[in-house]
Structure formats: structure tokens, C-alpha cells
């Protein structure tokens, strides 16, 4: 078992227990530009992800012309 993180259509797996902040760091994603949601609940950066968790990473920045 591991923590599964889904960003757009991509899946990432991380082994073991890890905080949201650490998980984003490992994936080289800025915590300023990404939010993490578990079962519809927004998580803060100190919340802990455990084996079996499936979380969604929501990119918070979007681009395009103004």
C-alpha cells in the first residue's frame, strides 16, 4: 500500500506516512500553486497522508490571456 496522489490525469505513489507539505516537495510542486484534497476535504500542509489514502492535487494557478 502507499499514498496515491492524483494530479490532473497523472498518478503518483509515495510509500509510507508523509505530510502534505513533504508530499508536494517530493513531487517538486509548489505549495503556493497546489492544494490537496482528500475525500472532498481540503487539507492543510501539516495534515498527514497515510498508506491507502488517495488524494487529489488541485493546481490553483491558471493561465491564459487577460
Amino acid at each position: 500500500m502507499s499514498v496515491v496522489l492524483i494530479l490532473r490525469k497523472q498518478e503518483f505513489k509515495i510509500e509510507g506516512t508523509i505530510t502534505v507539505k513533504e508530499a508536494l516537495k517530493r513531487l517538486n510542486l509548489s505549495p503556493e500553486s497546489h492544494l490537496v484534497v482528500r475525500n472532498g476535504e481540503l487539507l492543510n500542509e501539516n495534515d498527514v497522508l497515510r498508506d491507502g489514502d488517495v488524494v487529489k492535487i488541485v493546481p490553483s494557478i491558471s493561465g491564459g490571456g487577460r
Binding site: 509548489s30 503556493e32 500553486s33 494557478i61 493561465g63 491564459g64 490571456g65
Partner: peptide, 19 residues
């Protein structure tokens, strides 16, 4: 995202500024 936003300067700047 709007498919045309990909690779836009604005996204690049936002990313830099968030770092």
C-alpha cells in the same frame, strides 16, 4: 485549463512568483 493557455508567459510568471 483553456487548451491555449498551456505554455503561456503568464503561467510561467505565476510559477516563478510562487517560488
Amino acid at each position: 485549463e483553456c487548451p491555449f493557455a498551456e505554455g503561456s508567459k503568464q503561467l510561467l510568471y505565476k510559477d516563478l512568483l510562487n517560488r
